[in-house]
Design a binder for these strands. Structure first.
Length: 390
DNA sequence: AATTCGGGGAA
DNA sequence: TTCCCAGAATT
């Protein structure tokens, strides 16, 4: 508990004065310091929607490139609704949390088919679309439609928890209600979208998690966390549940066809992790011991006549890939099957040329495998006689 | 209320 | 390394 923490006044007149000062100082700061982001100054609810989905659990700097590519390919909600899921996932490849892309695509078809191509303007209406929750509904309603609605994201949680020296965890229970209540009381009736973006911008640029720049903060004077002397005490940090390490093997199976390399990709199941994405055949196990080569060739048994143990044992690299709460290290194998007769492929398998590889929906880990392959292709060409390429 | 989702960059 | 980011859906 903060020793200098002040009681909130219940006198209506005083609250309104406090809130108006908060709004004025925040908006004034935002007008001076707002970043020039591509989804700002755009009078297009669809563009706001796309940006907000991409920004879920993802930093602004990461989103920029994806957003530009997306809007170029799918400029309107109709373009998105008409697109194949495969292409949607392809544009999302590497951004993570792929469910967002699936939901956005499905919601786009809902908007076109049921709402005559227009996004709902109310929070209640917006939340009926899959992928739009409390935060995103508030964001679209206030930013795109000027509705006086609050929004709470990670930044807003932190700013408000500090400003009021709130001890409760803002992610749940009483702390969550408190933050949403305050956000609702504070939001500026005249410029709700700018106010909300200003709150997030302040959290992102000034009221940062580790070392807040209180000397630059427009809200310092009324901030009870600053008055406490240590604003980083708020909000309290919830201890994350950490998962154990994982080990895996990835196999780049390739052959030469017409002078160009082709790769064998496998499609992941429609449900579960990385649903529907393509990958170089992979095996993974929990823990720190490596899966065996036998594990790697398990899915190949009976598919091709070869001495798989020997052929698959060619390793050309190791990659570490870090997820939200997991750490996967994979050994990368290569296998040239140019000389082998390969059986007919089922629906889950596909040969892809090197040029086509970048146009396939896949995870960030597969991107790393691909880059590793490309980086080492010069070395490989020195080792492998040119005759193999013809 | 607690998990799951499989990216990534700053400190 | 750790933290946590313009979170939502599911259980």
């Amino acid at each position: 508990m903060c020793p200098t923490k002040q009681k909130m006044s219940n006198k209506t007149g005083q609250d309104e004065g406090e809130e108006q000062g908060f709004r004025r100082r925040l908006l004034s700061w935002f007008d001076e310091n707002r970043r020039d982001l591509p989804w700002r100054y755009v009078d297009d609810p669809y563009a706001v929607w796309v940006s907000e989905i991409m920004l879920q659990q993802t930093r602004v700097t990461t989103v920029l490139d994806y957003y530009e590519r997306w809007m170029k390919r799918f400029p309107t909600v109709e373009d998105l609704a008409e697109a194949d899921l495969e292409e949607v996932l392809e544009l999302w490849s590497g951004l993570g949390y792929y469910r967002r892309a699936r939901h956005l695509h499905r919601a786009a078809t809902t908007v076109v088919d049921e709402f005559d191509g227009e996004l709902p303007q109310s929070v209640k209406g917006l939340k009926k679309l899959t992928g739009i929750g409390d935060y995103t509904a508030g964001a679209i309603a206030s930013i795109a439609f000027g509705q006086v609605e609050p929004l709470v994201d990670g930044n807003v949680m932190r700013v408000i928890a500090r400003y009021y020296a709130q001890d409760e965890d803002p992610k749940r229970g009483a702390g969550k209600r408190f933050v949403w209540d305050q956000a609702g009381k504070l939001v500026d009736p005249g410029r709700p979208g700018d106010f909300n973006q200003g709150l997030m911008e302040l959290g992102s640029l000034v009221c940062t998690a580790k070392s807040p720049k209180c000397s630059e903060c427009p809200l310092r004077r009324g901030c009870q966390g600053f008055a406490c002397g240590d604003p980083t005490r708020f909000p309290p940090t919830a201890t994350p549940t950490r998962q154990g390490p994982m080990r895996g093997r990835v196999c780049v199976i390739y052959r030469f066809s017409g002078g160009e390399a082709e790769f064998l990709l496998r499609r992941r199941p429609a449900e579960g992790l990385l649903a529907g994405l393509w990958e170089f055949p992979t095996v993974e196990v929990d823990g720190k011991s490596w899966p065996t080569l036998k594990d790697l060739r398990g899915w190949l048994s009976g598919e091709a006549e070869t001495d798989q143990d020997r052929d698959l044992s060619k390793e050309f690299g190791e990659i570490e890939h870090v997820f939200s709460h997991r750490r996967l290290r994979v050994k990368v194998h290569q296998w040239d099957v140019s000389a082998l007769h390969w059986p007919t492929l089922g629906k889950r398998w596909r040969w892809v040329s090197e040029a086509e590889l970048s146009g396939v929906a896949s995870s960030a880990l597969m991107g790393k495998v691909k880059r590793l392959w490309t980086e080492q292709s010069e070395d490989r060409q020195q080792e492998i006689p040119v005759s193999q390429n013809g």
